[in-house]
Design a protein around this nucleic acid. Sequence first.
RNA 1: GCCGAUGUGGCUCAGUGGCAGAGCAGCUGAUUCGUAAUCAGCAGGUCGGCGGUUCAAAUCCGCCCAUCGGCUCCA
Length: 636
Amino acid sequence: MVAIKLKDGGQREYPEGISLLQVAEDISNKLAKNTVVARFNGQLRDLHTEVTEDGTLELLDFDNPEARVVYRHSSSHVMAQAVQRLWPGTQLAIGPAIDKGFYYDFESPHTFTPDDFKAIEEEMLKIIKADYPIIKKELSREDALSFFRDRKEQYKVELIEDLPVDAVISTYQQGEFIDLCAGPHLPSTGRLKAVKLMSLAGAYWRGSEANQMLQRIYATSFPKKSLLDDYLHKLEEAKRRDHRRLGRELGLFVVLDEGPGFPFFMPKGMILRNELEKFWREEHARAGYHEIRTPIILNREMWEQSGHWDHYKENMYFTVIDETDYAIKPMNCPGGMLAYKQTIHSYRDLPLRMGEMGLVHRHEMSGVLHGLMRVRAFTQDDAHIFMLPDQIIDEIKGVIELVDRFYTLFGFPYHVEVSTKPEKAMGSDEMWDIATEALKQALDEKGMKYRINEGDGAFYGPKIDFHLQDSLDRTWQCGTIQLDFQMPEKFDLTYVGEDGEKHRPAMIHRVIYGSIERFIGILTEHFAGAFPSWLAPVQVRVLPITDRSHEYARQVVEELKAEGIRAEADLRSEKTGYKIREGQMQKIPYLLIVGDKEVEAGTVSVRHRREGDLGPAALKDFKILLRSEIEEKLNR
RNA sequence: GCCGAUGUGGCUCAGUGGCAGAGCAGCUGAUUCGUAAUCAGCAGGUCGGCGGUUCAAAUCCGCCCAUCGGCUCCA
């Protein structure tokens, strides 16, 4: 007999060799049916696992994130099975679960198209209906290799060859389909319910451009049709928040074929942008920054000196002036270095924080351009901080605080990554270790959680990256802090120390918004275009009900403008409902409806874009309300 | 850059070899209206570009450009 302790504290006895599924069934049929995978003595196990020792058992259903991964992983096997049935000769690469579903990478003589989706889904449903048990089998490395060689699954062979010597190698079988897999899996294919193929993509084997490109099919699955429908509905909702759509609809910005990756900012987008810059300047002045502006174009010699000519050339644009090579800046740092050098600095001047809203151009590969999120010309809210070595930690902490102040104001959740030395890098390993440790120490002291992103640092130093999410939960790097011992060296930066000798300052590059363009993209999606009043391009629109109130409407607009409020009137000969609809669709924070009653009483009827009709108010009171909302940067 | 899909008026889209269409937006006129769409009329497109097949191409073929979804790369 074995003793099994349950999550609720109860304990039951069973004959040795009973499966976890049978235990679940013994507790409740419904529970057994909903259970995806078990955690037995802390380890995720297939429900077919036979119990041979005492232990604690937890039964996980689809709501559990780990179980969800198992559910999707089994789904990917079923999809692969369907694909191999329909297109024999298709080779399997890998098929993991991902955040919202799963994918499988194939190599096939057949080129998959979305027209194939229906057939694949139907075949998957057959496999689900057949309810094949999913059976695990462990085998030796030799057996595994010969098995997959016989099946002409070269990717599986390669995977096995790369497994550590002591790895337990297992396969999972359902019907005629057998895949190399560590598991765990669902007990049978019938556990799947709603499956949907989403999209196709090319993907390099093992993520490397040097390798074969495979065909990836993205899909998702749920234990209930209603959950799938909810998910698809949410995707549709998210698309409505897409900054590319809203940017056009709200007259903020647009990217045209005439300038791929070079966005146009329209008048309303400029208001947003200018407000963001204004806020930035206020905050940075308060945090002790000076602002500079350096040239867009600088000569080749300087880019050679900075190392960009050697390390960043493929991303740069070039020009020739008077038969001399010049480059358009892809980063602001070299200009910042030259600016630093214009005066002799004492240790007393440090830390010296020099900010720059710098427009940089980078040649990005055509396939990566994406609205405002990924462009070829963007403005970095850059700053370079020159400091004494013992000021590094405090300065980094100061930037972390500033980033947090900004992101919190906008209500953005974010996550942090530390990127370490890349392959193409300048400087010694020792320098990199010191710099990387400094970044980690600052984060630790601020109590921030972070992930390590190996090999993803800039060529001149390691960095802390702050990532924000877009409406489809894709994440984009915005803020970053990069510690750099290289540039000060390259440009021979010095300060005069207490000893009267010249010393080398330490330096960090940092951005808060990251790129104003990307930040505006994120901001647009985050607020679904309904920006807080302080950012809203139009803060108030006055809607006269008839021509009789036009004069009054104009007066109201003038009074608001006199207070610095962005107001306009809709004097078209339309019904009130029509004007309100348009105002709502433009996401204007406040609509003021004025008719005979308001003219008579000298009031305005206030309508808030989310709260609706707030009733009449004296114009004076409305102004006070809105002014404070703007000044406090409230998100109402 | 690579894989796949897409490209028709300002926007959303219909049109699969035989006279380029609809709705919204725009303009003009009428309507003077109270919290998410008043009515009527008008105007607007060398169907992404170039080349080819054909009596005839938005439609079929080729190349290019751009966009979308990924991969790779990075704010």
